[in-house]
């Protein structure tokens, strides 16, 4: 069993001594902390310190490039944020984006999930699913830039079909009215497969016996959904919806390439505002304050997520 016992007594000396010296680490009392050390180092250097920095900066006026010294201004950054039309506009855009996006992805995803539920014997199933799942693993930046071509008013394929069918051309990403819906369509295309995956998982959590019973009793699809599927699968679906909400709230890369927040500020989401405050205007203090607000929103989402997760585990 022991590596050192297999060797001769002479050459094992160093190893044994070495081992004995660290034997105390076998004690769970020390080991439990030792195992955490690497993660804790990461956690402190890349999370705790930046976070404290962020909180501190949010009370200062700090413009990066001017070389102006830091100036303590108390809560002024927060007051400015709450009084800023631009930021409220970005927030309302974000909520529109989150709610409409998550809603359409959920509805479509559930429909697709139900369609694919009974597909175990589909020829080439794995290949078909790979095709469906591909949109969500592509780099959002690449997807965004490619959809620029697809949406292009002159060279885009969507406008080609639109023109030959309806005789109109729409500048999808260039018009204030169409930009946000167009981005939403891409987001929905990307993430509907995720909700489909969650629906399949939710359906998979329903005991086979209950599904068979529903089959025998010939229940309508509506009653199957409400009385058989939802009681078991609802928490998984809720986790999926919440993850989509959080992710949509974070959306950045895709909009960054497709519209950059424009035209005007038609597609400006909170992530883009934050980016502009920090790296276009270099107003780091104000950006920090905004980041803290975003952080608080994220923490509340996480709490809801964990609450539902707990419910799910209790119900299982």
């Amino acid at each position: 069993m022991d590596a050192s016992s297999a060797m001769g007594p002479g050459d094992a000396g160093f190893l044994t001594r070495f081992r004995e010296k660290f034997l105390f680490l076998e004690n769970p009392k020390y080991l439990q902390h030792l195992l955490l050390v690497p993660v804790l180092i990461f956690f402190i250097v890349w999370n705790v310190i930046p976070l404290l920095w962020l909180v501190g900066l949010s009370f200062y006026k700090y413009v990066l490039v001017t070389g102006e010294p830091l100036k303590f201004i108390g809560l002024t950054n927060f007051k400015e944020i709450f009084g800023s039309f631009e930021i409220w506009h970005a927030l309302s855009n974000t909520f529109f984006f989150v709610i409409i996006g998550t809603l359409s992805q959920t509805v479509l995803g559930i429909i697709l999930g139900f369609l694919f539920w009974d597909s175990k014997d589909l020829p080439g199933r794995r290949f078909a699913l790979t095709l469906i799942f591909t949109p969500m693993i592509l780099a959002p930046l690449a997807t965004g830039s490619f959809f620029k071509l697809i949406y292009d008013p002159v060279f885009g394929i969507v406008n080609y079909f639109l023109k030959s069918i309806a005789g109109v051309t729409i500048d999808f990403l260039g018009s204030t009215a169409w930009a946000l819906p167009s981005v939403l369509i891409v987001d929905t295309w990307m993430w509907t497969p995720f909700m489909m995956m969650m629906t399949l998982a939710a359906l998979g959590s329903v005991p086979k016996a209950e599904l068979e019973a529903a089959e025998v009793e010939n229940l309508s699809w509506y009653r199957r959904l409400v009385h058989v599927v939802l009681p078991h699968g609802k928490f998984i679906l809720m986790l999926g919806i919440l993850l989509r909400t959080i992710d949509a709230f974070k959306s950045m890369d895709i909009i960054f390439t497709m519209t950059g927040g424009g035209p005007g500020n038609a597609t400006e989401l909170i992530g883009i505002t934050l980016y502009r405050q920090a790296f276009n205007a270099f107003t780091m203090g104000k950006a920090s304050a905004l980041a803290i607000i975003a952080l608080l929103i994220a923490i509340s989402f996480t709490s809801i997520y964990l609450y539902i997760l707990q419910k799910k585990e209790e119900s299982m």
């Binding site: 890349w46 930046p50 976070l51 920095w53 962020l54 900066l57 959080i246 709230f249 974070k250 950045m252 909170i270 992530g271 883009i272 934050l274 980016y275 920090a278 780091m284 950006a287 920090s288 905004l290 980041a291 803290i292 975003a294 952080l295 994220a298 923490i299 989402f301 996480t302 997520y305």
Partner: peptide
């Protein structure tokens, strides 16, 4: 769960 743009500022 925090938007990337919020993380990137202090980093």
């Amino acid at each position: 769960m925090v938007p990337a743009a919020a993380v990137v500022v202090p980093i």
